[in-house]
Write a protein that binds this DNA or RNA. Structure first.
Length: 272
DNA sequence: ACTCGTGTTAGCTG
DNA sequence: TCAGCTAACACGAG
């Protein structure tokens, strides 16, 4: 679920976990905490604090300090396909809603405790948890950011031209490649290409510089709007990713197919 | 019962 | 070596 806008939302919530002394870490889920052994993350963090929460693309990480106030390891957090950040306050009281996922379908959305895959407990009785039904999220020490391209919301015009405007794969696949630029997921890619009236199948190397500049402008606009409104599902075309639905702009049928291994929707008239 | 999926990545191929 | 593609991952939802 989480793409760049949801992760930015989650990062802001994660800031509520800063500057609280860590008393315990449950890192016993060795799949979510791979490649660490159980206890390894706990040993590195207990006694210290998280002091800053950063994000690049869909990856978050916290700076930490040790009990002595020296710089500690970075704590990487990735929400995967459906993870969310959950923060509790002193005494364990809930602090706001889960951050980073879909809007609630119903008021009584299930939140089983066993779906808290990693828990960082603080001396005030509160905690930070990675809530993730599917366990495709990750928590790890010293996450490697080298393989990530520039953040999709920050990438410069020249960088975008050079990184996106090459190769023979479909433009959609290029936008989804986190090493090219980071943060674009399946829905944000569809939204951006629809807004820009670009065929998702078109090879990325065939775009002119003005076309790339326009694509970047639309991507940044769609990304900012999604952050502001609470997620990619608030896009203009995303609600129209259904069978027998017309393009909300021109009325032509929306078409469905697979591009770059992912389910893709596009306007049969404007994005052909 | 069975298929799908808003993400990542190891491994294969040309 | 690299760009591009596929399967696998885990498990709930429809």
């Amino acid at each position: 679920m989480p793409e760049l806008p949801e992760v930015e939302n989650a990062r802001q919530v994660l800031e509520k976990a800063l500057d609280r002394t860590i008393t315990d870490v449950d890192d016993s889920d060795s799949y979510v905490c791979r490649p660490h052994r159980p206890g390894e993350i706990a040993k590195a963090l207990v006694g210290g604090k998280l002091v800053a929460a950063h994000r690049r693309g869909k990856t978050m990480w916290c700076e930490t300090v040790t009990a002595d106030g020296d710089p500690g390891p970075h704590l990487g957090v990735h929400l995967g396909m459906g993870g969310r950040v959950r923060i509790t306050g002193p005494g364990g009281a809930r602090e706001g809603e889960l951050a980073g996922g879909l809007p609630k379908k119903s008021a009584e959305e299930k939140q089983k405790d066993e779906w808290d895959r990693v828990t960082v407990s603080f001396d005030d009785g509160g905690s930070f948890r990675l809530f993730d039904k599917r366990r495709l999220g990750r928590v790890r020490l010293e996450p490697d950011l080298d393989a990530l391209g520039p953040d999709a919301a920050e990438i410069s015009r020249d960088d975008f031209r050079a990184r996106v405007g090459r190769g023979t794969a479909p433009i959609k696949a290029r936008l989804l490649d986190q090493s090219v630029l980071s943060g674009v997921g399946n829905l944000l890619a569809d939204e951006t290409l629809w807004q820009a009236k670009v065929d998702p199948h078109r090879p990325s190397g065939t775009f002119s510089e003005p076309e790339l500049d326009e694509l970047r402008r639309v991507l940044r606009k769609a990304t900012r709007a999604a952050i502001k409104h609470g997620g990619v599902h608030t896009g203009e075309v995303i609600p129209h990713r259904q069978r027998d639905v017309a393009c909300p702009r021109c009325g032509a049928p929306m078409e469905r197919g697979t591009v770059g291994t992912r389910t893709t929707w596009w306007c049969s008239a404007e994005q052909a």
